[in-house]
């Protein structure tokens, strides 16, 4: 029996954002994700492996998965590369004056060393203290002209300094919003109005982890994707989702239950799967086991 044609006719498609040296491109889908009957884009979801330069807040269980290479961020990034990862996500936690208090110049040197060691696109986040991050991003951006970094993150309250830094260094910038389709759009408008190139933005609508609000993120992502496909240009910007929040969920890391390592691996992998199915183009991951699973699922879903 013939079954009905269920292809949707969409009027818009996702923007394509060139990352790193131009050999990585995010976005481009022209249908709902992984549906080969309506989405002609075969681009794979990309996975970024997390590296931090200060382990004081980093879970011991995660550290134990890296065979001591976590003590040297450059070695750590090399290990991610050997696992086949697409990008490195470097969190400069150490620039916090209450931690290592790394100087902006030292931070920039670390970024340079990781770029040299891996030749992969690098996402750079600060420590979360706005003034410290701003100072560091200015120096990192300036010293890395000619290498396209992905700088995180611009939010509604704090976007001017980091945006100026990104514009000056021709880097990509992450526009952060908090589980709100309208705010996600607003952030993209704010940044382009400020002078950031439309092609240099990735949006992060906040991926809440499994069991801690994943339902909100899943639907916000789907709504963003559907709006993009109905040709809302300001929502056609590729999406980056951070799955490492899974490690903050009590049930995921509860070591009183059986096999905490297996459980936290699934916790992060399912968060990443939900991100992927709802529309992520790039996913940041912490756990090498989960990242390996998601890389192979991403390959398979792409259909090649």
């Amino acid at each position: 029996m013939k079954i009905p044609d269920v292809n949707e006719k969409y009027s818009g498609k996702m923007n394509e954002t060139v990352l790193g040296k131009g050999d990585y491109v995010a976005g481009g889908a022209d249908g709902m994700f992984f549906l080969s009957f309506e989405n002609s884009s075969k681009r794979r979801v990309m996975i970024a492996g997390e590296v931090v330069d200060d382990l004081s807040d980093y879970p011991e269980l995660a550290a134990s998965m890296f065979d001591n290479r976590q003590k040297d961020p450059v070695e750590w990034a090399r290990m991610w590369k050997s696992l086949g990862i697409d990008m490195i996500c470097l969190r400069l936690k150490g620039i916090d004056p209450d931690k290592k208090g790394t100087t902006p110049a030292e931070a920039a040197e670390l970024v340079q060393n990781i770029v040299n060691a891996t030749q992969l696109p690098i996402i750079v986040y600060g420590c979360g203290i706005a003034d410290v991050d701003n100072d560091v991003m200015k120096v990192v951006s300036g010293s890395m002209k000619g290498t396209k970094l992905i700088l995180g993150k611009a939010d509604e309250d704090e976007y001017k300094t980091i945006s100026s830094a990104a514009i000056a260094g021709k880097h990509t910038i992450i526009a952060f919003s908090n589980l709100d389709v309208n705010l996600a759009k607003q952030m993209n408008i704010i940044l382009t109005d400020f002078g950031v190139q439309y092609n240099d933005i990735l949006m992060d609508p906040l991926m809440a982890p499994l069991g801690m609000g994943l339902d909100y993120s899943y639907s916000v992502n789907e709504r963003i994707r559907l709006a993009a496909l109905s040709n809302d240009k300001m929502l056609q910007i590729p999406m980056i989702c951070d799955a490492t929040g899974s490690w903050d969920v009590g049930d995921a890391v509860n070591d009183e239950l059986d096999n905490v390592k297996g459980r936290v691996t699934w916790w992060e992998a399912m968060t990443a799967m939900a991100a992927m199915v709802s529309g992520a183009d790039i996913i940041i991951m912490r756990n090498p086991g989960a990242a390996d699973m998601i890389m192979s699922y991403a390959d398979e879903l792409r259909g090649e």
């Binding site: 499994l210 069991g211 995921a252 239950l257 096999n259 297996g262 459980r263 399912m270 939900a274």
Partner: peptide, 10 residues
Amino acid sequence: EYEALPLFTL
């Protein structure tokens, strides 16, 4: 067990 809890949560 370690597979079931995340799956049920999903």
